[in-house]
Design a protein around this nucleic acid. Structure first.
Lengths: 200, 200
DNA sequence: CCGTTAAGGGAACTATGGTTCCGATAAGGG
DNA sequence: CCCTTATCGGAACCATAGTTCCCTTAACGG
C-alpha cells in the first residue's frame, strides 16, 4: 500500500506555509471570539482570505484544525522558575497558570481548545501532548527539590506539578469559581503539603 | 413589559412532560454516542419521535438542551458516605468519581456535558450548579471530621471535596492519564494531607 | 365537562456548511 | 532555469440544519 502523504507535506514551504499561518491565526482568533462551537471552516477560509477548498482539504474538520493549532502551541514552551526553593517555584507555577487562564485571550483560547479535545479524538491527543510538554518542563523544579532534600525521595515530579494545576482547572471548568492570586497560592500550598507528606 | 413565559411552563403536564422526557433521553443517548459536537436538534427530534418544530421552539440550541439535561441531573444526587473517618470518606468519594468517569456511559456523558458548558453560557451555569450540589452533599464528611477533631478548624469543607476530584478531572481532561483505583486513592490521600496541613 | 389557548407537529422554504470539478499557480528537484 | 506536479482556489452543486406558517391536539381552570 503506497503511503499517500497528507496535503501540504510534500512541498511545505512558500505559499503552503503562508496559508497555514493565516489559517491558524484565523482559527485562534475565532476560538477566542466564538469558542469551539463557532469554529466554522468556511468562515475561517473567508477570514484567512484563503480558498474554502484549501481549508477543507488540508484540515477537513474543526477538530483537526484545533489539533493543528495545539501542535503549533506545544512548540513554544515557557521556561520554568529556578528559585532554589520548591515553595517559591510551585507558587510561581500556580500564578502563571492563573495568569494564563484569566487572560482575556489566553483563557478563552484554552477553554475552547479543551472543548475541542472533548469533541474530537485528534484534538484530544494533541491537548494531552501539550500538557505533557508543559508539565515536563516544570517537573525539573521538583526533581531539584528532591535532590536538595526538600521533598521525600520517590515523589513523582510530574504528579506534583499536575497537582498544582488541577484545582485551578477544576475551578475553571467544573465549579466556575473565581481564579485569583489567593487561589493560586492555595493550590501551590496544597500540592506542597501533599508532596511533603509523601502522598504524590 | 408583560413577562412572556417560556414554552412549556404554563401547561407542563401530560404531553408536554412526555415530550421533555423523550427529548432528554434522546439528548443523553446522543451525547454519549457522538459527543456534544454531534448534538443536532433535528436529529434529536427524529430520535425522540417528536416534531422538529417543538424541539427548536422549546430548546432552540444544543447548549440550552444540554443545560436542561444538567438541571434534570442535578436533582438526583447520590448520598455521601458516613464511615465516621475522613480518610475512608474521602477515599470513597474519590473512588465514586473514578467509577463514574470510567463508566462507558457516564464518562462519555460527563465529558460531553463539560464540552457543552465550554460552548454555551447557559450550559456552563447549569454545570457549575450541578457540581455545587454534588460538592455540598459530600462537604458534610469534612464538617463532621472537623467536629471530631480529625481536621483543623477553619478548613473549608467544599474546598477539601473539590481537592479530591480536581486531580481526577485533570487526568481526564488535560493529561489523558488513566483513571484507576490507585489514582483515586492517591487523590484522596493528597487532599487529606493538604487539609491536615491546614492548606485548604 | 366545556372552553380557552398553550403546546405540538406537518410541510414548505431558506440559508449555508460542506463537496466536487477542474483550471491556475508556484514549490522544489534536476 | 525549466519541468513536473503538489497545492491553491473559483464556481457550481448538494444536503440538511434551522425557520416560518398554520392547522391540530390536548392541558387545565372554572
Amino acid at each position: 500500500m503506497a503511503a499517500v502523504p497528507p496535503p501540504g507535506a510534500v512541498r511545505p514551504g512558500g505559499r503552503t506555509a503562508r496559508v497555514r499561518e493565516a489559517v491558524l491565526r484565523a482559527a485562534g482568533d475565532t476560538l477566542v471570539e466564538k469558542g469551539f462551537a463557532g469554529l466554522d471552516l468556511a468562515d475561517i477560509a473567508r477570514l484567512a482570505e484563503v480558498g474554502k477548498t484549501t481549508v477543507y482539504r488540508r484540515w477537513g474538520t474543526p477538530g483537526a484544525l484545533a489539533a493543528d493549532l495545539l501542535k503549533d502551541m506545544a512548540e513554544t514552551s515557557l521556561p520554568r522558575a529556578r528559585n532554589g526553593d520548591v515553595r517559591a517555584d510551585l507558587r510561581d507555577n500556580a500564578r502563571l497558570v492563573v495568569k494564563t487562564l484569566t487572560d482575556p485571550r489566553q483563557g478563552r483560547l484554552f477553554r475552547a481548545l479543551i472543548a475541542a479535545s472533548l469533541c474530537d479524538g485528534e484534538a484530544a491527543r494533541a491537548l494531552h501532548r501539550f500538557y505533557a510538554v508543559r508539565i515536563e518542563e516544570w517537573a525539573g523544579c521538583v526533581t531539584d527539590a528532591i535532590e536538595r532534600g526538600e521533598l521525600p525521595p520517590g515523589t513523582d515530579p510530574r504528579r506534583v506539578i499536575a497537582a498544582v494545576s488541577a484545582p485551578l482547572y477544576y475551578a475553571l471548568l467544573n465549579t466556575g469559581e473565581a481564579l485569583d492570586e489567593a487561589a493560586a497560592d492555595r493550590a501551590a500550598a496544597a500540592a506542597l503539603a501533599a508532596a511533603r507528606a509523601g502522598a504524590l
